[in-house]
């Protein structure tokens, strides 16, 4: 018997009697009119900046200002204009290392915890949202859901090779529990909610 068979056999002998799988029904009444403010609020608590804009031009202006300011800025989202095609799945880490600011569009946001779902296809390269110094996420305001349960109803895992919930700038409290923003991932997170 190889290890796989040994382990599976040991489980078969040792496992307890079958117990049914529960039906997860979390019965909470959400007030959907407050979801967006709650989402913005929790993002702020998580250490992100969150702005609700009426017009995509505001975000475009912000992007242009960053480029004009001499910051190495990458745009991956068509809504904001020309996409930086030079960044793609094959870009190596050293090539991505100097990226200062990256604009990526999110798929879905969660009001209970401020997490935003990013999919591989939207980020062009899996490393980009982490290796950039500052991450900017653009999210359609209609894409906000109440909680994790709803979020997983709308995401089909496995369609894409990789996806991540991002809920703020990278951080650590490993030294005496004192909070430091900017651990290994992006140092800041800015979220544009677009009406």
């Amino acid at each position: 018997m190889n290890s796989r068979e040994k382990i599976l056999a040991a489980i078969a002998i040792n496992k307890p009697a079958f117990q049914p799988m529960p039906d997860v029904v979390v019965d909470i009444k959400y007030d959907y009119s407050v979801l967006v403010p709650q989402f913005l609020n929790i993002l702020q608590i998580n250490g992100a900046t969150a702005v609700w804009v009426e017009n995509v031009q505001t975000i475009k202006d912000d992007l242009q200002k960053n480029i004009a300011g001499g910051h190495y800025t990458i745009n991956t989202t068509e809504v904001l204009g020309i996409v930086n095609e030079e960044i793609n799945i094959n870009s190596n880490p050293a090539f991505l290392d100097p990226v200062e600011i990256a604009y990526i569009s999110g798929t879905l946001g969660i009001a209970e915890n401020g997490a935003i779902w990013l999919e591989e296809s939207k980020m062009r390269n899996r490393l980009l949202p982490f290796i950039c110094q500052h991450l900017v996420i653009v999210l359609d305001v209609t894409k906000i859901v109440a909680d994790m349960h709803e979020a997983y109803k709308r995401i089909t895992l496995g369609n894409e090779g990789y996806g991540v919930f991002v809920a703020g700038p990278s951080k650590t409290a490993d030294i005496e529990q004192s909070l430091v923003v900017g651990a290994h991932g992006a140092r800041s997170l800015k979220v544009y909610l677009l009406s």
């Binding site: 799945i89 401020g114 997490a115 899996r126 982490f130 990789y162 996806g163 809920a167």
Partner: peptide, 17 residues
């Protein structure tokens, strides 16, 4: 830690190219 979720919850399904 009392956070509502970790900063990153990464879902790996396929190796990248």
């Amino acid at each position: 830690t009392g956070q509502p979720i970790t900063v990153y919850s990464s879902h790996f399904h396929k190796p990248r190219n």
